[in-house]
Amino acid sequence: MKKRIKKAAVTAACILFWLILWQLVAMKLNSRFLLASPVEVIKRLFELVITPDFLQSVMFSAGRILLGFALGMTAGCTLALLSGKVRIIRTLFSPLISAMKSVPVASITILALIWAGSKNLSVFVSFLISTPIVCSNMLEGIDSLDPKLKEMSRVFKIPLWKRFTGVYLSQMLPYFRAASRLAIGLCWKSGVAAEVIGIPQGSIGRKLYESKIYLETADLFAWTLAVIILSWLCEKLFMLLVGILQKRVERM
């Protein structure tokens, strides 16, 4: 307990250090257009939070980004399972996964704009960002499965479902955890970036774009802070769910 309090205190002190530094630089520059101070940003964020527009934009972007993430997780896991089982599928999809990993978000966004329009842009981009991450990590997990445990399951005639959860899932979950943590953050980053390019009506990306157009630096920072908080919350919530699942599997 003492250790946790100490750790939290150190983290808080680090955050405070950066906030003070930010405030000092903002005061030195003395220009709201160049750099809004943290006090101004937090004040602006509170002003934005109480507007109906804020919740609407959050719902619009979060819903689409998380939908893309969920689809990406499903596709990535399925593809990894199939690739782990069937050699030809692994060979067939390997160049596609590599390409998906290295194609710039801007290119994906422009393609998505041409193919699907701007409304569901972030679904498509989040899906394309999360699928290769999840697929590669899960495949790494599948490759590292101990074949001797498979033999042990056969000797003890462990039923199929228990074999899946106890032997395979328990070994795969740490990989799933790492993949989802990485993917969820990237989905938020790239999803919002795509919205800034596609400027769909009612999205966080559009708000960021508008704050750039009107040189509202405080708005830009406030919306950025909102995205950071939302991304962090989503990650924590998802990790909590994965953690609960992991504990259940661990204890069978």
């Binding site: 003890f156 106890g166 032997v167 599997v249 204890r251």
Partner: peptide, 17 residues
Amino acid sequence: ENRLCENLTASANIRLV
């Protein structure tokens, strides 16, 4: 080798069989 499922608890390894 022991061939235990490393991410399961000791008792879960037994309940598995």
